[in-house]
């Protein structure tokens, strides 16, 4: 819907331009990127490559590693699913309804981006612990919400919510009302319109939000460790296990776990990208 910029269709290393500073800015950017990001990350790859295959597999097959990975990916998945459902409701309310304080609610959604994770961590732990305000009420209902995987999910819901809302919001704002009117005039009820007309158009954005929320949840550390209880095999997340291995100076194990985490995350992002491309082609909606 935006106009295309009138750039030259020709492709060399660089399309000629009258603007100066290309060499300087690109050179500086590449040098800085290499120093800060690429060299350190390739150190991780190099360190992993120097592990022998049996060594690597032994670390991976360690039940503590397997459990930590299972807990990290499992809780992140649960939290991302919760965030998709409630994130869409929150987005719908912010985009479609007019109520006093709408702007404040909209701004509040960004809180997890701005609030340091450690602050969120101790605050959530204080609230959801058995003697906390919410934890006490949940305890009466027999629900233990902290120092177990449920606590991890709560922290990850907090962290992941803005990813879903901020990805879905712009697409929802641009939904064409005429399509909804057409559906209504053709006799669809509201639920049918939402489920069969609006949802398919929103699907790529929802999927992206899910993926971002999930990816963030897998790697999250600061907000989780206070509420998780960190019991090995039960509520110990993979990033924490990396920290523990580092503190034991077991660099090999820390590196191997980190590499596995990165590989699984990248693979999932790739799959989700492919699904998105497919669904964009099918529904003709960008996200």
């Amino acid at each position: 819907m935006n106009g295309f910029s009138a750039s030259s269709p020709r492709w060399r290393l660089k399309t000629p331009s009258v603007l100066p500073g290309f060499g300087l800015t690109l050179g500086f950017s590449l040098a800085y990127l290499t120093l800060i990001i690429l060299i350190p990350l390739s150190g991780l790859v190099w360190r992993t490559a120097s592990l022998s295959a049996p060594e690597f597999l032994a670390i991976l097959a360690d039940p503590r590693t397997l459990n930590a990975l299972k807990i990290s990916f499992g809780t992140a998945l649960a939290a991302a699913l919760i965030n998709v459902v409630f994130g869409c409701v929150v987005t719908w309310v912010i985009v479609r309804y007019d109520f006093p304080g709408r702007r404040i609610v909209d701004a509040l959604v960004d809180l997890p981006f701005a609030l340091p994770t450690a602050v969120a961590g101790i605050s959530l732990a204080a609230l959801y612990a058995p003697n906390g305000w919410i934890g006490h009420i949940l305890g009466l209902a027999g629900i233990k919400a902290a120092f177990n995987p449920t606590g991890i999910v709560i922290a990850l819901v907090f962290i992941g919510l803005p990813f879903v809302v901020r990805t879905v919001q712009p697409v929802m704002e641009e939904l064409d009302r005429e399509v909804e009117e057409a559906a209504a005039t053709l006799g669809a009820n509201r639920l049918q319109t939402i489920g069969r007309i609006l949802l398919p158009g929103l699907a790529p954005a929802i999927l992206t939000g899910f993926a971002l929320s999930f990816a963030r949840g897998v790697g999250e550390y600061g907000s989780v460790i206070f509420i998780a209880g960190n019991i090995p095999y039960v509520s110990e997340i993979a990033p924490l296990l990396i920290v523990i291995r580092l503190e034991e100076f077991n660099y090999a194990a820390a590196t191997a776990i980190a590499t596995i985490m990165l590989c699984i995350s990248f693979a999932m992002l790739l799959v989700i990208n492919l699904i998105q491309t497919w669904s964009r082609r099918r529904y003709g909606h960008g996200a």
């Binding site: 750039s7 030259s8 492709w11 060399r12 290393l13 660089k14 399309t15 331009s17 603007l19 290309f22 690109l26 950017s29 590449l30 990127l33 990001i37 690429l38 350190p40 990350l41 150190g43 991780l44 994770t117 990816a215 897998v218 790697g219 999250e220 550390y221 600061g222 990033p239 924490l240 990396i242 920290v243 580092l246 820390a254 590196t255 980190a258 985490m261 990165l262 995350s265 990248f266 992002l269």
Partner: peptide, 29 residues
């Protein structure tokens, strides 16, 4: 401001730290 080869790749690389766990960001150093 410029069109050059590998631009999309460079943009992806710049976003890379967002998809890396903070703990791993520390670990690499």
């Amino acid at each position: 401001k410029f069109e050059f080869k590998g631009k999309a790749f460079l943009t992806t690389l710049i976003d890379l730290p967002f998809s890396v766990s903070p703990v791993i960001s520390g670990l690499v150093y």
